[in-house]
């Protein structure tokens, strides 16, 4: 026809450029389509799947935990409460306080009672220990409960209705340093007792073992709860 060779090449090149432009436009358009709504939908679908899986796992967990609640969790709770109440043995760092009667001979005219250990001496020590954060206390292997008494019973002391004679060994678990310091405080328990010659010593120990309360406890009068009015 009327094209020469030069024209053919040029036309081919021009058409090739047109083809490239067409293809690029097509691809860009496709990628935009893929980018915005499709990718978003895919992403949301993926997230939905993940969240559903998570939900199913959590439901299973819940079920398992509810099944467990009847035995394992309750058992754990009971153990913890027992430990708090003093019905289990405890061990941990703490102090051991040994108290014994005075070896000083009472001066004539002095009240010999002043040279003996009394319940209130021990109560002061116990109180001091509790103030210093003792988590568990035992006197001569008798665990102190919330309702334990320390009471004078003739020449002996009665703790949990068991009688003990001196020397008394008080074990307490807690911050050994602060308990020791609170006892040795100037003008504190130890200084007062030592004034009367009462032998008292405090040692911090890495491991103090408290025995459990061995008796039984029951409520005769108290009932649980506030009760209906």
């Amino acid at each position: 026809m009327f094209y020469d060779k030069h024209a053919k090449i040029l036309i081919t090149i021009v058409c090739a450029i047109l083809g490239v432009m067409l293809a690029t436009q097509f691809r860009t358009n496709e990628s935009i389509k893929a980018n915005i709504p499709y990718q978003r939908a895919e992403e949301l679908g993926e997230r939905l799947k993940v969240v559903e899986k998570e939900r199913n796992n959590l439901l299973l967990d819940l079920q398992r935990l509810q099944e467990k609640t009847s035995d394992e969790v309750i058992a754990r709770e009971i153990n913890l409460l027992k430990a708090h109440a003093g019905f289990t043995a405890l061990h941990g760092p703490g102090v051991v306080v040994t108290v014994d009667d005075s070896k000083k001979a009472a001066k004539p005219g002095d009240n010999p009672n002043l040279y003996l250990i009394h319940d209130d001496d021990l109560l002061r020590i116990i109180n001091e220990l509790r103030a210093a954060g003792a988590e568990g206390i035992a006197i001569n292997d008798e665990r102190l409960l919330a309702v334990s008494e320390i009471r004078c019973a003739g020449p002996t002391l009665s703790v949990n209705n068991n009688r003990f004679a001196p020397p008394y060994v008080i074990r307490a678990i807690g911050d050994a340093k602060s308990m020791e310091n609170s006892l040795k405080m100037r003008g504190g328990v130890m200084e007062t007792l030592k004034f009367w010659g009462i032998q008292i010593s405090v040692t911090s120990e890495e491991k103090v073992v408290l025995p459990p309360y061995r008796g039984t406890q029951s409520f005769e009068y108290a009932k649980v709860g506030e009760g209906a009015k």
């Binding site: 021009v14 047109l18 432009m21 935009i32």
Partner: peptide, 22 residues
């Protein structure tokens, strides 16, 4: 020739790694 060129262009464009910013 134009058809031939167009096909080459389409082929190159579709296989070109670079894409146009939106």
């Amino acid at each position: 020739y134009p058809l031939f060129g167009l096909l080459i262009g389409l082929y190159v464009g579709l296989n070109m790694p670079l894409s146009l910013p939106q």
